[in-house]
Computed example of a mutant assay.
Amino acid sequence: MTVDLDVPEGIRRHLLAGEWIPNPDQPADHDELVTVVAVYRQESAGMVWVKGNVCGHGVPDCGTGPASNARLSPR
């Protein structure tokens, strides 16, 4: 199923603990601020894949490090 989700590249999103899954079948136990690189709109098991850069606390160049993928609830 394709999700109607439009997240522009470069926008920052605050992912809440329990609402995103950085590792298979292991929900995150912490919040994370990320700069979105891409959102894959194909839903799988109620989640979509998000590719983004983690924003370190107090780092002025937020989200310039390596990108990683995580599953995120689109709701």
Rank of each mutant, 00 (worst) to 15 (best):
G18V: 08
G18F: 06
W49K: 15
E43F: 03
E43A: 14
V36W: 01
N23Y: 12
D61R: 14
L15H: 06
P8W: 05
R75C: 06
T64I: 08
P22R: 01
G46P: 02
H14P: 01
P24D: 08
R12A: 10
E32Y: 03
V7E: 03
N23A: 11
Y40T: 02
K51R: 15
I11N: 10
A17E: 09
Q26S: 12
E43H: 04
A67K: 03
Q26K: 11
D6N: 13
H14N: 11
N53M: 08
D25F: 12
S68Y: 09
I11Q: 14
P66G: 10
L15Y: 10
A28D: 01
D31H: 06
G52A: 10
V59F: 12
M47K: 13
Y40Q: 09
L72Q: 03
A70Q: 08
G18Q: 06
V50R: 00
H57D: 15
V3Y: 02
E43Q: 15
A67R: 05
S73C: 10
A28T: 02
M47N: 07
S68K: 10
C62V: 04
W49L: 12
P22W: 01
L5Y: 00
V3S: 07
L15V: 04
E32A: 14
G63F: 06
G58Y: 05
P24T: 00
A67S: 15
V59S: 09
L15D: 03
K51T: 12
A67G: 05
A17G: 06
M47I: 02
P24V: 00
G65R: 07
H30V: 07
A67Q: 08
T64L: 11
S44K: 09
G46D: 00
Y40H: 13
V34C: 06
A70R: 14
M1Q: 09
A38E: 15
G46I: 02
Y40C: 04
P24M: 01
G10S: 08
L72D: 00
V50H: 00
E19Q: 11
G56W: 04
V36I: 14
V48M: 07
L33E: 09
T64D: 13
W20Y: 15
G46H: 00
P22S: 05
G10C: 06
V34Y: 04
V34N: 04
I11P: 00
S44I: 09
D61A: 14
C62D: 00
S68Q: 11
V3I: 13
L72M: 13
E32M: 13
D31F: 02
L72C: 08
V37M: 10
L33V: 15
R71S: 09
R13T: 05
A67I: 05
S44L: 11
G52M: 05
N53Q: 14
P27C: 02
D4R: 12
V36H: 01
H14F: 07
G65H: 02
G65W: 02
H30G: 02
C62W: 02
E19G: 05
V54S: 14
H57Y: 11
D29N: 08
W49N: 12
G63A: 09
I21C: 10
A17C: 03
A70K: 11
S68P: 01
E9M: 08
I21G: 00
L16H: 11
E19W: 07
V39G: 01
R41N: 14
